[in-house]
C-alpha cells in the first residue's frame, strides 16, 4: 500500500502540473506579501485568489489524473488487491500531492511573512477544501466513463460551487428578506465547501466582525470557537462523504 501510494504520488509530481501549480501559488503569495505592508491584508488577497484557483486545479487535476491512470488502475485491479484499497491509494496520493502544493505555495510564504493562527487556519482550511474538491472529482470521474464528459462535469460543478451557488443564496436572501433567515443562511453555507472554507478562514481574521455586523445568531456563531469547530467539521464531512460515495461506486464499477 505504502509503496503504491508513493508510486502514484511520485507519478503526479513528475507530471509537473502539481509543481507548476505550487510555484504559481508561491509566486502569487510572495508578490502579494511584498506588495502590502500589512500581512493581514495580504492574507485576504491571497485568500481571494486561492479560493478560485485551489478548487479549480484540485478538481481538474484529480479528474484528469484519474482518467489518465485508468489503464493502470485496470492493471492494479488484476492484482490481488481490493478495489477499495486501490482507490484509497489513489486518493491518498492525490491528497499528498495537493496538500504538498498548498504547503509550499501558500504555507511557507504565509508562515514566513505572517506566522500565527490566521495563516495556520488558512492553510488547514484551504487544504481541506482542496481534498474535498479532489474527493468530489473522483466521484465524478468514477461515475462518468467518458473523459471529456468527466472533465466537463467537474468544471460545471466547480462553476456551480464557485459562482452559481452564491448567486442562488443571494437570490433566496433577497426574495425572502422579510423572513428571519439567519439560521437558514448558515445552513446554506454548509452545502458548499468553497463557502465553508472561505467562512472558516474569515472567522480567523479580524474581518469576521463584519460578518456578525447584525444579528445575534451570526454574531454568536462567528464570534466563537464553536463556529470554527462547526465549519471545520462540516468541511471534513465534505471530504468523507464524496469519497465514500466514490468508494461505493468504484466497488461496483465496470472497468
Amino acid at each position: 500500500m505504502k509503496k503504491l501510494i508513493s508510486y502514484i504520488f511520485m507519478d503526479m509530481l513528475k507530471s509537473r502540473i502539481i509543481i507548476a501549480y505550487a510555484l504559481f501559488l508561491l509566486m502569487v503569495s510572495l508578490v502579494l506579501f511584498s506588495l502590502d505592508d500589512n500581512p493581514g491584508k495580504s492574507l485576504l488577497s491571497i485568500l481571494n485568489i486561492a479560493i478560485i484557483v485551489v478548487p479549480l486545479v484540485s478538481m481538474i487535476f484529480s479528474t484528469i489524473h484519474y482518467y489518465n491512470s485508468y489503464e493502470f488502475l485496470e492493471l492494479l485491479l488484476a492484482q490481488p488487491m481490493s478495489r477499495s484499497a486501490i482507490l484509497w491509494c489513489e486518493f491518498a496520493a492525490l491528497c499528498a500531492a495537493l496538500t504538498l502544493a498548498i504547503l509550499t505555495g501558500l504555507g511557507i510564504p504565509s508562515l514566513l511573512y505572517f506566522p500565527g493562527t490566521e495563516s495556520l487556519w488558512m492553510i488547514v482550511s484551504i487544504s481541506l477544501l482542496s481534498l474535498s474538491c479532489a474527493a468530489i472529482a473522483l466521484l465524478i470521474s468514477i461515475r462518468t466513463r467518458d473523459k471529456a464528459r468527466g472533465i466537463g462535469i467537474s468544471l460545471l460543478v466547480w462553476f456551480y460551487f464557485s459562482l452559481i451557488f452564491d448567486g442562488l443564496i443571494l437570490l433566496i436572501l433577497f426574495s425572502f428578506s422579510d423572513y428571519p433567515l439567519e439560521k437558514f443562511t448558515l445552513a446554506l453555507i454548509a452545502l458548499n465547501p468553497i463557502d465553508l472554507s472561505r467562512v472558516t478562514i474569515m472567522l480567523q481574521l479580524d474581518i469576521s466582525a463584519l460578518m456578525g455586523y447584525t444579528g445575534a445568531l451570526l454574531k454568536s456563531f462567528f464570534g466563537t470557537a464553536y463556529g470554527l469547530a462547526a465549519t471545520t467539521f462540516v468541511l471534513i464531512l465534505w471530504i468523507l462523504v464524496p469519497f465514500s460515495l466514490a468508494l461505493k461506486s468504484f466497488r461496483k464499477k465496470d472497468m
Binding site: 503504491l4 513528475k14 489503464e71 488484476a78
Partner: peptide, 28 residues
C-alpha cells in the same frame, strides 16, 4: 480478491503511468 494471486493477465493494450520507469513497475 485473493484468487487474483493465481492469475496472470495481459491486456489488449497495456498502458501504464507515463512517468514510471519500467524497473519501478516490476518492483511495484
Amino acid at each position: 480478491t485473493h484468487y487474483r494471486s493465481f492469475l496472470g493477465y495481459m491486456p489488449q493494450m497495456g498502458r501504464f503511468p507515463d512517468h514510471m520507469k519500467v524497473r519501478q513497475l516490476f518492483e511495484l
